[in-house]
Simulated assay, not measured.
Amino acid sequence: MNILVLGGTRFFGKKLVELCIENGHNVTILTRGQSGNPFGTKVKQLVVNRDDANALSQALSGTTWDIVYDNICYSPNEAHQLSKLLDGKTKKLVFTSTLSTYDINSTVKTEEDFNPYNYEIRMGEREDFSYGEGKRQAEAVLFKEATFPVVAVRFPIVMGENDYTRRLHFHVERILQDQPISFPNIEAKMSFITDEEAAAFLYFAGITPIEGPYNATATDAISLQDLMRLIEEASGKHAKISLVGGDEQSQSPYGIPADWYMSTAKAEAAGFTFSHLHDWLPALVKTLVKELK
């Protein structure tokens, strides 16, 4: 198949491209070129800033795709532009969405908790919205405007050794350095997924006939308190936890006021089997502790 990946040079986007190559597909990556091309001649690269509508239109002129993966769409304007440019050019779009489309209110989230098909659209750029609202708006635009099948994959926080956001790294480093970490609710539970499993589900979403929104996360959830204990056990250090206030530098990037995790029943019914969070998280924590000591 001919596959186009928007944003495929780092983290789970890179894993997705590697998976497509391994399965013998013809892969093109579309990037700004800032992260280079880690795949060499195994892929074709289009160096384009997606915010430049004319350049993006020119880059996609005369192309057709079996699957397009968009990992870097954050606003309704970007979604609208892409849905127009891909009209008649692709058989399917897989859009990377987020757990942030759901409210944080301690209930286990199912896909029905956010319905993009009847969500009111407000056009704008990414800076006009919060991260979660930008993704909600992008989903709504794609599902209402696209003339081709669309899958919106709602990921929680993605973890991995090569996470450029370094969110898990933050906690490991603060504990190793005896620095405080502040949480609004350390008993709150969260969902997580690895970069490899995120890539695997994106690939699955592209090659199977599913459409619509799908949650994708490792099964089960973990409290932030238990996550800190994993780091303490792996490092032999005691975490300095603050539950009230704290300066900006100490605030956990995982800080949430209540449980925030998802059900994967819909994806599992479609045929995908997810890993169990506790089968890989302790090993990842140990690896990061060893690397960062």
Rank of each mutant, 00 (worst) to 15 (best):
L6C: 13
G7F: 09
G8E: 14
F11P: 05
K14D: 06
N26I: 05
G36P: 03
P38L: 01
F39C: 06
K42D: 15
V48W: 04
D51W: 05
A53T: 13
A59S: 04
A59L: 02
A59C: 06
S61A: 15
W65P: 13
D66E: 14
Y69W: 06
D70Y: 02
N71P: 02
N71H: 14
I72N: 09
Y74D: 06
P76D: 00
Q81L: 14
Q81M: 10
S83C: 13
K84L: 13
K84N: 15
L86V: 03
G88H: 12
G88I: 08
K92G: 11
T96K: 03
S97Y: 00
I104W: 04
V108W: 01
K109F: 07
T110Y: 12
D113V: 00
P116I: 01
P116C: 04
N118I: 09
E120T: 03
R122W: 09
G124F: 00
F129H: 03
G132N: 02
A146V: 07
T147R: 14
V150Q: 09
M159S: 13
H169E: 14
F170N: 12
H171P: 14
V172C: 11
V172R: 11
R174H: 15
R174W: 12
I175D: 13
L176M: 14
S182Q: 07
S182C: 09
F183G: 02
P184Y: 01
E187G: 01
A200T: 08
L202R: 04
Y203H: 14
F204P: 12
A205H: 10
E211C: 12
A216I: 10
T217E: 13
T219E: 15
A221G: 09
E233D: 14
A234R: 04
S235Q: 07
H238M: 14
H238G: 07
A239F: 04
L243A: 03
E248F: 09
S250E: 15
A258T: 03
D259I: 04
W260K: 02
W260A: 00
A265T: 10
G271S: 06
L277Y: 06
H278R: 12
A283C: 04
